[in-house]
Nucleic acid binder design. Structure first.
Lengths: 119, 119, 119, 119
DNA sequence: GTGGTCTAGACCACG
DNA sequence: GTGGTCTAGACCACA
């Protein structure tokens, strides 16, 4: 499920974190789904369990999952804050592109193109 | 000109790097303009000259500026690769937002809103 | 492994950089091999760790190695761009030598001589 | 005649030095030709006469030109050492390319291709 | 004066 | 232990 790349500049725990966030955003993991156990995932990815645990701790802190002692971790869904942050990033990126002289029409066209799958 | 924030997760040299990239993209600094000297900026920002130099070295490598020993550093303009990278980031972000169920109409509306200054 | 010469005009970090490039090109260091740690090499060469790190940073940027914080630096192999650059340098040098009146036969003979090891 | 590029990493005096060496090697400037005067060239290139003088001093030291007080500087031709250095560079480059697995045939073919003008 | 290199030594995040 | 960042201060080459 999660793909690690040691050449990637991001630390391992963050790649795991980002990987799960993407899967939850895309609906691959849905509310109520059980997350793989720390030990299980650590074995599968061949990395230290501490690294997994750090990623899970962060995911829980940000509201993506909830850990239940003795039962495991479960997906909560996409936190409200996430969409807001992504939209802020979208606005900032848009502002930059417009300031560089790229016409709004072109950006809108790119949205349509990228959105064909979701039409 | 450049604003540093020690609470920002990014290292200082990167904040400087990003700051100048924005200024060049926005046209505040234009081709041929002289960059502040390493020592001058270091004094102004109250940081070590080496940190400035690291930022300038990367800016030069990425094609934003040209440094001439004994003369100073000069703005080259926006590298070709930059707009492409930003557009790729835009596409990726758009795809994520659409996959979360945010309608393309809303994204398009946000572009219009942000683009009023450039209309 | 790496030999430094303070009389050499090239800065130390570049001598290190060039030294590793040669070793990777020649296959002495191969994909996946571990690079000596920054501190280790600094001690061995009796120079400052920062100088090693600068060399490693450039090697990583050019695609020769990948550095993972907390784990070490690992050889990626010869970047695609490298062979192209060397061949361009070869063409330029050849053109110069031919323009000086050195016959193509002599250059070809020199290749054969140098290539006996690889025949 | 001489083209300066401030974006070039080489210092100005070296660009001048290399420029004249190329012209002499290519036969654009021939033995006995008069070099432009320091003041004349400094005006033409819009740089400091000291920089020109440094280049001329180096050219004289390497045997490319000879300066006659009160008369000017005159081209001597290509020094013996130059061809030897270029051939050494050629051998080194060839060795590197062969060690990377590039066949000698390909290098020979490139020589033929580049030498068509001099056939 | 400029940028470029190097040293010595500190602190941090990561695994 | 690893690499990454930053500081303080030195010396050099260039223009």
């Amino acid at each position: 499920m999660i793909h690690l790349d040691h050449r990637d500049g991001r630390p391992i725990y963050q790649q795991i974190l980002d990987g799960f966030r993407e899967q939850i955003r895309a609906g691959v993991l849905m509310e109520g789904d059980r997350m793989p156990s720390v030990r299980e995932l650590a074995t599968q990815l061949a990395i230290n369990p501490n690294t997994i645990q750090r990623a899970y701790r962060e995911l829980e802190f940000q509201g993506w999952i909830a850990s239940v002692a003795g039962k495991g971790s479960f997906v909560c869904g996409v936190p409200q804050s996430d969409a807001q942050e992504l939209l802020q990033a979208f606005d900032k990126l848009t502002t930059t592109l417009l300031s560089m002289g790229i016409p709004a029409r072109e950006l809108a066209a790119r949205i349509e193109k990228g959105g064909e799958d979701h039409a």
